[in-house]
């Protein structure tokens, strides 16, 4: 397997994948997220989003600050369903 520069570890998305998607016209961070599942894995974008922003800036010339971050959705870390439901339905 040829080594790659990995942007998103969770979903295994490489730099080439991101650049290709940007070339195809996905130039909004949310669009990229939905197209590639970047930031949708267990780390929820902690590792990759700042890299995607830099790649977007480099390729589109858009200032990072003008690119909105994808919305942050709870929970902050993955939590098992059993714990969340723990108030009910347990004997």
């Amino acid at each position: 397997m040829k080594k790659k520069a990995i942007v998103c570890r969770c979903e295994d998305i490489s730099l080439e994948d991101v650049e290709k998607a940007i070339d195809e016209g996905y130039t909004d961070i949310e669009e990229l997220r939905k197209k590639l599942r970047i930031g949708m894995g267990p780390c929820q974008g902690r590792v990759c989003i700042q890299l995607v922003m830099k790649i977007l800036e480099k390729k589109t010339g858009k200032e990072v600050g003008k690119i909105n971050l994808p919305s942050s959705r709870p929970p902050i870390i993955p939590v098992c369903l059993g714990s969340i439901a723990s108030d009910k339905n347990e004997k």
Binding site: M1, K3, I6, C10, D12, S14, R46, I77
Partner: peptide, 15 residues
């Protein structure tokens, strides 16, 4: 890509 992965962030954040 079936690449090997291991300890990276050390604080329970990455996967």
């Amino acid at each position: 890509y079936d690449l090997p992965r291991g300890f990276f962030c050390g604080i329970g954040k990455c996967s």
